[in-house]
Each structure stands twice: as structure tokens, then as C-alpha cells.
Amino acid sequence: MAFDSFGAFLAMEGHGPYVWASYGVFFVLMAVLMVGSYRRRNAVLQSCRQPAGSRSSRAPEPDSDTAPAAAASFTRVDVSQD
């Protein structure tokens, strides 16, 4: 251990706020990216699972601000090459 106590570990000799802010942003952004991608994959998987008739052909997007992009991806459904 490079630190004497847990308190010293948190304080980092006065540099604590900088270190923890950096690590915090890193963890939050990575978590958002990873969980967001995972949930979106599952949502798309879910929409593929529904029977062909009731299925909406546009991909669900979790965040509402990209809704126009989701609408635009209507035309992106393509026939497979295999």
C-alpha cells in the first residue's frame, strides 16, 4: 500500500478531488457506453423477435434526442448478402 489509511487514500495528499473526478468521469462514461450499448442491442434483438407482421422495421433508440436518426434508419434495412 502506498497509503497509511483509507482517509489518506481518499485525500491523496490534497490531490484527491482531481484524481477522483477523473476516475469518476471515466467510470461513469464507460458504464453509460457499455450499459447503453448492451441495452440497445437487447432492444434491437427484442424487436427482431416479434412476428414479421407486427414488427416495426425501424430500430428502437434508447435516447429520445436521436429520434430523427432512428426514423431515418428506416431506409437502412438492407437485404443480406448471404
Binding site: 457499455m34 427482431c48 434495412v77
Partner: peptide, 29 residues
Amino acid sequence: LLFGWLACLRMQTEILIREQRTRWVQDLF
């Protein structure tokens, strides 16, 4: 490695969107 995971995951998503009408995607289920 985490980037690899993320890339695979997001590529799967994109593939599913593009190929959702194909037989193999339906076969998955």
C-alpha cells in the same frame, strides 16, 4: 479488451438492424 467487447456488441446491434428480415436472424430465436 473492453473496446473489443464494445465493438462486437455494437456491431451485433448494427448487423441485427440491417438484417432483421433475413432468415438467419429469425432462425436465431
